[in-house]
């Protein structure tokens, strides 16, 4: 593992829960690695599976999707649908021999600031272990 490797991570965070948990982490002055850049979405159900594929092929070392806990979705079942789609993308990744662990789906409720921080650290560390995404430097994609 390259000690200097700083993964490039992107996260789709649902506006009602995980994005809000990040708010809470921020206001609580939690510290976590700066590698993940969040993108706010209204609902994890808005996350088009292609976003994950595109991010990966663009060279993201990890893609994170954060939503409300099952049963808590502001839009009732958006997160459950997100989970199904996420499952499909992960399956595509496994079958094609890509690394499904570069994709992570987590339920973090609005009040779980500490969980958000922990997830940011954990995902960062997990991706560091996997190393660089070789798609980043591949021209003939």
């Amino acid at each position: 593992m390259d000690a200097a490797f700083e993964p490039k991570l992107v996260g789709f965070l649902c506006r009602w829960c995980t994005y809000q948990a990040a708010d809470l982490a921020g206001v609580g002055r939690s510290r976590y690695p700066a590698n993940l850049v969040p993108i706010r979405v209204m609902c994890s159900g808005r996350v088009d599976p292609l976003f994950l594929v595109r991010a990966f092929l663009k060279g993201a070392d990890g893609v994170f999707v954060g939503g409300c806990h099952p049963g808590d979705c502001h839009y009732i079942e958006g997160n459950l649908r997100a989970r199904r789609r996420f499952g499909v993308v992960q399956t595509v990744f496994s079958v094609l021999g890509l690394e499904p662990k570069r994709l992570r789906l987590a339920w973090i409720s609005a009040s779980e600031g500490p969980k958000f921080t922990a997830q940011m650290k954990d995902f960062d560390a997990a991706v560091k272990k996997l190393g660089k995404n070789t798609a980043a430097a591949e021209v003939f994609l």
Partner: peptide, 25 residues
């Protein structure tokens, strides 16, 4: 800048994986 080259036509793999995501079920 980042990958020092681009395949033309671009994004073949995106197209194929995209289709897998959309319709493989």
């Amino acid at each position: 800048n980042s990958r020092k080259g681009v395949r033309v036509p671009p994004a073949t793999l995106l197209f194929q994986m995209g289709r897998m995501v959309h319709m493989s079920v």
